[in-house]
């Protein structure tokens, strides 16, 4: 089962105009969006789909405050769709759609869809840095930052769900769909990556009571920590609400910066996440501020330590 990761997250929202404004300002590009909503995509074509919450084409809502209506996973090929349909068809309804995709729900009622991935292959350089002792990544006269430099989300990275039972959640995604646990924050939950993705995590669970079931946050990969800082600073300057960050997580090593959104979930910029293969042995740490981040900073308005008070005339 070659699952790659989330292609799209689908939301049923109560204010399409506000959500369009937010998603565009976050750096996503509308792709075929009309007054009923549509896809806002990152550079590789993954992204967020919004519809009005009353749109009859949406899967049924969860009975909580969450606006998440479906997670669309990209897989490598048709054979993977068949394998997933066969496996999940053992104990639940799997709907086959005319376009070759399948729809079903996980053990908590989160709606899922599987499609042959629509991601476009990205060919872009990572952020380059210079350090003594190592060959220069940016040669002479190549600048690290400049006004107006691009800082666009490249790829949908991961989803974090509030789920009422970690064992049930892990059982479904690992035993049934072949996800692998990379690390565990005890008291919260495990980090998971699908078999066909070497990112530290595309999925993380936090155990909560049933009435909180939903999405805690979603994240997009940026080209590096500088792009993350530039995008986040611009976002704050435009009036958007920083929730947590910037900082750098320990598990996954990714830089992070989280923002509130009118989609009822946090949107995270992330950058420079660890990669893993099957040799990796999952670590465990107790959930808490210490395990969660290497460091945490807080944005402030631009300021400069000038030359001091002007001399008295």
């Amino acid at each position: 089962m070659n699952i790659i990761g989330p292609d799209y997250l689908v939301f049923g929202v109560d204010d399409l105009v506000a959500c369009s404004e937010f998603l565009t300002a976050f750096g996503l590009t509308p792709a075929g969006v009309d007054d009923k909503g549509g896809l806002f995509e990152a550079l590789d074509g993954t992204g967020v789909i919004i519809r009005h919450k009353s749109d009859p084409d949406l899967p049924a809502p969860l009975p909580t405050a969450t606006m998440l209506r479906q997670q669309v996973y990209g897989v490598r090929g048709d054979a993977d769709i068949e394998a997933i349909a066969a496996e999940l068809g053992k104990d639940r309804k799997v709907h086959r759609l005319a376009d070759g995709t399948i729809e079903t729900t996980d053990d908590f009622g989160f709606a899922l869809k599987f499609q042959v991935t629509k991601r476009r292959k990205l060919e872009m350089p990572a952020e380059k840095i210079n350090a003594p002792g190592a060959p220069a990544q940016r040669g002479p006269n190549v600048l690290g930052v400049w006004d107006g430099m691009p800082a666009k989300p490249r790829m949908l990275s991961h989803t974090v769900l509030f789920v009422p039972d970690i064992e049930v959640a892990t059982g479904f995604y690992c035993q049934r769909l072949g996800f692998v646990i990379t690390d565990v924050l005890k008291g919260a939950g495990p980090f998971l990556r699908p078999k066909d993705n070497d990112d530290h995590h595309t999925l993380f669970f936090i155990r909560t009571p049933e009435y909180m079931k939903g999405i805690e946050h979603l994240a997009f990969h940026m080209g590096g920590p500088t792009e993350l800082m530039v995008a986040g600073s611009r976002f704050v300057k435009s009036g958007y609400e920083s929730f947590w960050g910037p900082g750098r997580h320990k598990f996954g090593s990714n830089w992070f910066w989280y923002f509130n959104s009118p989609l009822g979930t946090h949107f995270e910029y992330d950058a420079d996440m660890d990669k893993h293969d099957d040799e990796w042995i999952a670590r465990e740490a107790p959930f808490g501020p210490e395990a969660s981040q290497m460091f945490l900073l807080q944005h402030r308005e631009k300021w400069v330590p000038g030359p001091g008070p002007a001399p008295k005339e």
Binding site: V13, F22, I215, N260, P262, G264
Partner: peptide, 27 residues
């Protein structure tokens, strides 16, 4: 406690019927 708006002054849900926390949609 954490801040609730999604943008400066945007504290209400879409219908304007409730104050909303734009972290996880509490009304």
């Amino acid at each position: 406690g954490t801040p609730m708006a999604w943008k400066a002054d945007r504290y209400l849900n879409g219908e304007g019927t409730h104050l909303a926390c734009h972290s996880h949609g509490a009304l």
